[in-house]
Amino acid sequence: MSYITKSPWIIHYDGSSCNGCDIEVLACLTPMYDVERFGIINTGNPKHADVFLVTGSVNEQNKNVVKQIYEQMPEPKVVVAVGICANNGGIFKECYNIQGGVDTVIPVDCYVPGCAARPEAIIDGVVKGLGILAEKREKLRQEQLAAKSGAKAAPQAMPVLDDPAEAKEEEA
């Protein structure tokens, strides 16, 4: 867990799930499993979120909602597909209104299996996702540093925040 240096915020969207995974996601936040001890908070606002938890598969009506929530989240971001339905459609795969897993619409970084996914598995998946998030953050920082030192006039997707620790070293 040593790589968790920030408090990752989560946004949860119910694709076309049966509620089973949703109540298990909520159960993760409550005293028994208590992910808040890792600083993980469930937020309703996609612009505050680092991790996108999707339960249930994607259909015609909600695929744009999923896409829009994903696009609104700031970089770097991680998508965790919770439950077999979000992975590939699961038991509902053959239904006429099911398009398939979440990865048919947005890129997924971490797949959590189960029907319904157990809270332990969900926490495990989110923690794996956080590792990926840290990697992505580092990559983004490298890219932006390269852009900063190279072509200064190039437009940046996001302002580079100097790491206070590094700044101190430079001063010294």
Binding site: S16, G56, N59, Q61, V65, I91, F92, E94, C95, Y96
Partner: peptide, 21 residues
């Protein structure tokens, strides 16, 4: 938003399997 159409799965699953759906 969550319409799956699972009632129609009776055409693909036997009546004993349908319980799981």
């Amino acid at each position: 938003f969550i319409h799956r159409g699972l009632e129609k799965l009776v055409e693909k699953k036997e009546y004993t399997e349908m319980v799981y759906v």
